[in-house]
């Protein structure tokens, strides 16, 4: 296999990834219920008044916050996937497969069911449920870290249970609010606003940086828990800390974009052969890859059936599901 540790090569790969992200985001600004030309976007970016004022309004208040939200949401999903795969030593560990995202969905359902009209209480309830669920599953999983297959199965079982609870609460929710709610459960960035984006960024950026800081320790886990500990990584203290931060990231991203699966699984898997297994490299790489993926998926969600929208989670699952099947039949080293 090629040497993935060369600094020159990595610099080029990262530069390429960032250029790709910039192009994708620019493209995402163009497409939507209402197409905007390259010239209009450039004119708006450079503060010229020459172009269409309607296009300016759409760009500033709808499309730009949405594209930025897609990028940060995807970055969070990608990096969290890498961290979970490292912490659980399984290329299949993922917030969605382990049931964390479904727990957040159930939390949102509870929030919808117990609040009369306003959607605001949904946010803290969903957030609290996902953090609690992550912690519960993580503690149980850490105690039984023997095999990753058992962990995934337990996660899938937990996810199904959460989905069932979600269904039960949907039946309680009054009908006019069900469509909004469904967008939450299947993931959507249609609710993106500048305010929500700022709050999500404030929570997500420091959390992902904290996870990145633990990168070299997560690297040691490939040798085994005991080896990692004898090399100085305090697994008993640091893995629960890492998983708690993952809970915060998953909670905040579900609040931002709902339940979106497979990005955290696909992106790291595709990038590993190019950037290697080191977490300090893989976490930012998966953040860029996740951002590109979600920006593209969200553009499809907005345009495929325009003017109506397709839930984002359906698009990632439609592609990610078959991919997971293929992954399960073809093992590669972590």
């Amino acid at each position: 296999m090629m040497d993935t540790s060369s600094p020159t090569r990595l610099t080029l790969e990262f530069a390429g990834g960032l250029v790709l992200l910039a192009l994708t985001m620019f493209g995402a600004l163009m497409f939507g219920a209402f197409s905007i030309g390259v010239g209009d976007i450039l004119a708006w970016m450079f503060g010229s008044d020459a172009a269409d004022p309607a296009a300016h309004r759409v760009l500033a208040s709808i499309r730009l916050p949405r594209v930025l939200a897609a990028a940060i949401f995807g970055a969070a999903l990608g990096s969290v996937g890498v961290v979970l795969q490292g912490a659980y030593r399984s290329p299949l560990a993922d917030a969605h497969l382990l049931g964390y995202s479904s727990a957040a969905g159930a939390g949102a359902a509870i929030g919808f069911a117990i609040t009369p009209v306003a959607a605001y209480p949904v946010v803290p309830v969903a957030f609290a449920v996902v953090v609690a669920a992550t912690f519960g599953v993580a503690t149980a999983a850490l105690r039984a870290r023997a095999g990753s297959e058992r962990l995934i199965l337990a996660g899938v079982a937990f996810g199904f249970a959460m989905l069932a609870w979600t269904g039960l609460f949907v039946l309680i929710v009054d009908s006019p609010r069900v469509p909004t709610f469904m967008f939450f459960v299947f993931g959507s960035l249609s609710g993106a606003t500048w305010k929500g984006l700022v709050v999500a960024t404030v929570v997500l950026v420091p959390s992902v940086l904290a996870l990145w800081r633990n990168g070299p320790g997560l690297d040691l886990l490939v040798l085994g828990d005991r080896e990692a500990r004898t090399l100085g990584f305090d697994t008993r203290r640091l893995i629960p800390t890492v998983v708690a931060v993952v809970g915060i990231v998953v909670g905040a991203s579900v609040v931002l974009g709902g339940v979106v699966g497979f990005v955290g699984l696909l992106v790291p898997f595709l990038l590993r052969p190019f950037v290697g297994p080191r977490h300090r490299i893989l976490i930012p790489a998966a953040a860029i890859g996740g951002a590109v993926t979600v920006v593209v998926a969200d553009t499809l969600a907005r345009t495929v059936a325009a003017p109506s929208e397709i839930p984002l989670g359906l698009i990632t699952a439609a592609v990610g599901g078959p991919f997971l099947g293929w992954l399960l039949l073809r093992r590669t080293p972590t």
Partner: peptide, 19 residues
């Protein structure tokens, strides 16, 4: 020793310096 590792020999030896 763990077998299924995508790190190279030098990277694994460098892990000895973690502490």
């Amino acid at each position: 020793q763990a077998e299924d590792i995508a790190f190279n020999v030098r990277q694994v030896v460098e892990m000895g310096r973690y502490a």
